[in-house]
Design a protein around this nucleic acid. Structure first.
Length: 224
DNA sequence: CTATGATCATCC
DNA sequence: GGATGATCATAG
């Protein structure tokens, strides 16, 4: 398997993705001439990057969908022994700067990324050796109006707290589908921010994540 | 340093 | 056992 050019159409992307179904990570890594890590402890993003290169996603780190020309974001979905998503899904970093306040839902990075997502389920039961874990049937999903109402409410509530620097309201407990969690190399990294009382505060960088309840619901609705 | 890819590890 | 908070690797 060679390094791929980005897919030029949705059907080309889907075709590539369906070709991966039932393959093992070991087979795919071999085909791409990549060495599988012993475990994911020190290679947490390995599988996501493996699938990216298998599909020809642009290897950028822009706050844009993985396939900008198609407006499609790629997300791997680790499944537990019951076939249900076992981890939350990272969406994007949460802006702490002045610009943060000026982001509106319609043009927000969260909505931009979640408008259309190609979910690729991957076996992630720890009892299965990494190289034997299989890739599942992909699901090309797009944001529907009912879901968007809830996501938007979550996003606006969380963005509001971020904007005001209300750290007490930035816990991962807030939000129905979307939540805010730390997103940094470690907890000692702090960014300066001026809060609603014009005080200087320092906060650990945050990211937006989708709860497992959200991705479990998506799979249930589309796979039954 | 900030973005991406996420999962780990601990607490309740 | 699940959720929250912490952390790891890499690219530009």
């Amino acid at each position: 398997m060679q390094k791929l050019t980005p897919p030029q159409s949705e059907s080309e992307l889907l075709q590539r993705c369906h070709a991966l179904t039932t393959k093992t990570l070991g087979e795919l890594a071999y085909a791409l001439q990549k060495e599988l890590p012993k475990n994911l402890t020190k290679a947490k993003g390995f599988i996501g990057q493996l699938i990216e290169s298998a599909l020809g996603a642009s290897a950028n780190n822009q706050p844009e969908p993985d396939f900008p020309n198609l407006g499609i974001e790629l997300k791997t979905l680790p499944l537990n022994a019951h076939g249900l998503p076992k981890e939350s899904t990272y969406v994007c970093t949460a802006p702490l700067g002045i610009q943060a306040e000026m982001e509106y839902w319609q043009t927000s990075r969260v909505r931009n990324k979640l408008a259309k997502v190609l979910w690729v389920p991957i076996e992630a039961d720890p009892n299965i050796p990494l190289n034997e874990r299989r890739i599942g049937t992909p699901l090309l999903w797009h944001l529907d109006p009912q879901t968007e109402i809830i996501l938007r409410q979550d996003w606006e509530e969380l963005s509001h707290s971020l904007h005001l620097g209300q750290t007490e309201n930035l816990s991962a407990k807030i939000g129905i589908y979307l939540q805010i969690r730390p997103k940094a190399a470690h907890s000692r990294i702090l960014n300066r921010k001026i809060n609603e009382d014009s005080e200087e505060i320092w906060i650990n960088p945050k990211g937006f994540y989708l709860r497992t309840a959200f991705t479990q619901k998506i799979l249930a609705e589309h796979y039954g």
